[in-house]
Amino acid sequence: MVRLTIDNKKIKVEEGTTLLETAQKLNIEIPTLCHHQALKPYGACRVCLVEVIKGSRLGLVASCTYPAEEGLVARTETERVKRARRLSIELLLARCPTSEKVREVALELGVKKVRFKEEKEECILCGLCVRVCEEAIAKSAISFINRGADREVTTPFKIGSLACIGCGACVYLCPTGAIKIEDVRKCRRLDFWNTKLELKKCKVCGKHFVPLVELDYLKDRIKSFEEMELPEEALEVCPKCRKRILSEKAGEFIFGEKYP
């Protein structure tokens, strides 16, 4: 355990806890854009900066990556912190003027006007999609390419991905809604990734609902269907039908065979 102080509040936390997590325990609010508790700390957006005293020096660090250290003193509300957070969000707002999420955080931080040249990007390069695809799904279908001002996220060679299973985890995590996912008849489209995937028919209703590759992936990941007391075909029934069947089964179980 290490003891530290944030905004004059003392706390004891487990070693390896980040300053952000520590602050959350203390109900101190810190804005974040590139952080997700299920993924490894990254430290890119810089809106979560706090000021810490390191030896005799004061320095800004990203609270989402900085580990709690014994005797550390951190402040989240100094002028220096505010100035830095505001500039980063203003820069992101200049990059993505239409993003709801960025506008919301900017407003929270008191940034209303952008003094810089505006662009029309939708992606803030927080890397959540890249990381969830690598760390949680283990597919690494997408990655950053280029560096500096030309950095972007895309699939290898910017063509349809061979690794993407269309699970949509990236869509779910993207804070700006830049990645869109759409099922059009027999096909799942992820235009942001230049990717189209063939869908499988539901065994019951016949609607196309899951990419074939995702199905394979799931079957592969679920090591033992028996252990889970799950028939393998369960995956081939769409969620809607699955829900209906389950409730019917439950009804039969409770009310007897005549149900409904």
Binding site: G43, A44, C45, R46, V47, A84, L87, S88, L91, L92, A94, R95, I124, L125, G127, F144, N146, R147, G148, A149, D150, R151
Partner: peptide
Amino acid sequence: RDESCGKCTPCREG
């Protein structure tokens, strides 16, 4: 500008 890795906001955008 061209050689920044582009990971963090202040460096890339700033």
